[in-house]
Amino acid sequence: MLEVSGLSIDLPGRSTAVRIVDEVSFAIPAATTVGLIGESGSGKTMTANALIGLLPDGAAVQGSLRWRGEELLTATSSRRRELRGDEIAMIFQDPLAALNPTQTIGRQVGEILRRSGQSRAAVRTRVIELLDRAGIPEPASKLASYPHEFSGGMRQRAVIAMALAGSPSLLLADEPTTALDVTVQARILRLLRTIQEESGLSMLLVSHDLRVMAHVAHQVVVMYAGRVAERGSTAAILRTPAHPYTRALVQSVPAVRTKSALAHPLPGTPATPAARPAGCAFHPRCPLARDRCREEQPVLRSIGPDRWTACHFAEEVLDERPA
């Protein structure tokens, strides 16, 4: 469905451009959920925004973004607008900011339908269906409601309904549960998983929470300081991480690997693209770091079927995994 190859994004800095995303590559197959995971500042959201052209002014993009064989980076702005909503839709991190406070929920969910020329009656019927599918009770009575009249979970469901209005083939979900309590998070995740399975659409899920990935994603792309640290199937990545950063992430979340209440927080401070260390960006926090790690940037290499890692000593990391 979507092939991302060598994606790099530079933003203007005080004296020189800053590379926020550096040579990121991955693919999203049909009917598959791919997760982008990493700490804040790792470049996850910027990568997702690049897929639909929502980048800051002055951003310079290199590489390739191929949607069903069509190169998006060279597509016209009008073509990109056609794709947004109709073929590729996005669920933003903050539903309150994503919704217009001056317009009703019904009007906002039905906007893309009205643009397609459907009658008012057909739009109303479809909006009710979408709200119902998103799990909003008594949807017909909610058409005239405003965003401030909805709870956080209900607003997120309304945003999901908006994203589904154009019947997209790819859904981009940027931290869709961050602002919600644990119970509502679980409901939203179940909803997204059900929609993905029933509709057969593809989904790119951006999150810093490995527990979210464990329940929803088929494949995972681990990012650190704007680069891909590791990628592969979710089961393989979480059970046998081959990069010290991925292993540290897994060990910091007890629910991913063990029933123990103990966790091991990551030491140190995440590297930022603006102050990315030489060599492997993770080496200041890595217990396996050696001179080679400080001097030579590791390349993303295959270490098995559908499994890649950017670590000089991946085999050693695998050998150290718990029995």
Rank of each mutant, 00 (worst) to 15 (best):
S8Y: 08
I9A: 09
R19C: 01
I20P: 04
D22R: 03
E23A: 11
A30D: 12
V34W: 13
S40I: 06
A50W: 01
R66G: 06
T74V: 04
T74C: 06
R81Y: 00
L83Q: 05
R84Y: 00
N100Y: 06
N100P: 00
R107N: 06
R115L: 12
S116Y: 02
Q118K: 14
S119N: 00
R124D: 01
R124I: 01
T125R: 15
R126F: 11
P137M: 13
L143F: 08
H148N: 14
M154N: 14
M154R: 12
L180R: 07
V184M: 12
I188W: 13
I188K: 13
L189E: 06
T194A: 02
I195C: 06
E197H: 13
G200W: 02
S207F: 09
V216G: 15
V216C: 14
H218N: 15
M223F: 10
G226K: 08
G226V: 09
V228F: 08
T234R: 12
R239M: 07
H243Q: 05
Y245M: 01
Y245W: 01
R247N: 01
P254T: 04
V256S: 04
K259F: 02
A261T: 12
P270L: 02
R285H: 03
A289R: 04
R294N: 00
E295C: 10
V299H: 15
R307I: 07
A314V: 07
V317E: 03
D319M: 13
E320L: 15
